[in-house]
Structure formats: C-alpha cells, structure tokens
Amino acid sequence: MEPILEVNNLTMDFGGLRALDRIDIDVKEGEIVALIGPNGAGKTTFFNCITGIHPPTKGEMVIRRPPKRNPQRLNGLKPNHVTERGLARTFQNIRLFPSMTVLENVMIGRHCRLRAGIAGAIFRNRATRQEEKQLVRDSYGVLEKIGLTRYVNELAMNLPYGEQRRLEIARAMATDPFLLLLDEPAAGMNPRETESLDELIVKIRDEEQISILLIEHDMKLVMSLSDRIFVVDYGKKIAEGTPEEIRNNPAVIKAYLGEEVDA
C-alpha cells in the first residue's frame, strides 16, 4: 500500500545552518509513527516544513488522502491549505487561544470545514444557522471523544497543563485530518497523564482512523505506541525501524550519548 505521507530528500537551510539534511520519511495508513532524536536534531523543523510554516530548501512532500489517494504535493502550500488537505498539528509549546473557551477553541478547528461568509454572518440565514448548530454538535462530539466535556465553557487558559495538551489534540482533530502531527504531546505531563495520553492516541487511531506522526522524548511512550520509529540527529536520518530494531541500533544509542534507551 502506498504511504499517505511521503517525504523525500527534505532539506532545510537557515542561512548557513543545515537544519534538515535529505530526510526521507513515510507514514502508511493506520500507523503510529514516531520521530525521535536529541534536542535540536531538527524534529520540529521537520513538522514546520510539512505544515507550511517554513518553505523547505529542497525536497518533495506528497500526501495521499484516503480513501481516494490522489497524490497531492505539499510544497509551497500555506499552513491553512495544508490543514485543509487533512494534516493537523499540535505545538511543542502549547499554542491554544487562551481567552477563548474550550468549546470555542475546538470550533476554530472546524473553521476550514465551514462555508458561512460575511453576508451569512450578518443576515444569519437558514443555512448559516444550521451550520452553526451542526458546528456546536460536532465540536462537542470531539470534546466527548477526547474527554474534555466537563471543561466545555472554561477558558482555555484556566485548564490544567495536561488538559491543555489534550485540548490541542481535540482542536487539531476538529479539522477532520487523516494524519495528526503531534509535537511532544507528553511534554510536562506526569506519569498518570502520560498513560492516559497513550490510550487516547491509540483510540484516535483505532476509532477515528486517523494516522499519527509524533515527536516525543518519552521513550516509554514512544516504544509502547509506535509501529515504526525514525531517528534524526543533526538534521540527518540515522535510523528507522520497529521499536525493537531501534532499541538495539548502535547508531541510535551513540546519538543519545549514554542517555538510556530502555523501555
């Protein structure tokens, strides 16, 4: 089966600094793929390239959205167009809309799936009213899936840290993605929260048929979740394979320089 995300030869230069060097990565439908590597290895840059925040210097990025699987290039698309095509992401340093409520945050996620324009907003015609109702229903549905309904009218900034991370995932899911990009979803979480995150990610994959590509430092989480793992260091891909293969890969162990890679 052809991969739903295929990145070939991706290179990104910042001035003289090569942040990414000929990276090849692919994600197949229904997979949970992890991207790991030491700090500053270029993982977040990789996300930023795919999602259109930084235009890459070189390389090809192609998606094939199920079920039709027409190949579409991501190169040169603006972030909002990437999201429209079915890639949604979260951020390493949480970027919610702090003074909007939890529900409103999720409603923003649905923005690109709605049609209402200025005239619709002013005259609030039948179609707009219906759309708004559907929007609330859908958004609440997403919150139910993620388990955030008890905070529905709370301002995002008043949420506990772990729940903010979950809200970011909810917001991303509201955009109807086929592939979810999670940037360090477990950062700053306590072990209990991490465990429930683990369950949540699996649930998203199994019940929503959304494939997942995640960046993560928590090796326990990565090893238990991932179908495949890519390892980058200094902008280069140094290994790929199943958790088992990665665990025993000498190059990976070296890259982490004594950092324990036990699960």
């Binding site: 999602t51 809309f97 923003i108 923005h111 209402a116």
Partner: peptide, 25 residues
Amino acid sequence: DSRIGRAWIALREDEVACQAMGIDK
C-alpha cells in the same frame, strides 16, 4: 458571533496556531 468573528479573535490570540488550524490569515 460568527465564523468570521471567531477567526478574528483566534488571529488576535495566536497567529501561528490560527493558521495551523486552517484559517486563511
């Protein structure tokens, strides 16, 4: 109170996240 109004507020709160959520800046 509309789709466009919410987009404005989101833009004010966080431009990068706003775009990443599919809003045309």
